[in-house]
Amino acid sequence: MKIHHIGIVTSDMDEALTALDLDRNNVSEVVFDPIQKNNLYFIHLPENDLWLELIEPMSDDASTVRFAQKNGLGLHHLEIGTDELEAVEAEYQTRPGAFVLGRYTITVNSFGGQIRTLFIAVKGLILEFVKVVK
């Protein structure tokens, strides 16, 4: 298993960047997700070969708005790269305590173009599996 990125939700992007000792110059790409209604800020950490995805809800019905209201700033999910999204989903659906939360397609050039994602919760842990399509 290779962790590709860590998703962090914030209600205040500058506060999140300061907490991580980063600034807006470290952000390589900003993507608005029209389905989940979040702004996504992508930051590469070359020392770790890892990406950070900072997530800022942009409306009252954004998928992360209540998490942001509750925590202000907090670790939201771990993302794992895979070529076998369907197999991953089939496997987790049979596991006790595991629930599929959603499937999305979005273009993130920092991740190689169009990606398909699968969000799964295992109790309080949210995992996002990502497959690069093109």
Binding site: T64, R66, F67, Q69, K70, G97, F99, A121, K123
Partner: peptide, 13 residues
């Protein structure tokens, strides 16, 4: 505000 998305998962569990 009693439940957020993670609380929904807890309820499902």
């Amino acid at each position: 505000g009693i439940m957020d998305s993670l609380d929904i998962v807890s309820l499902a569990v």
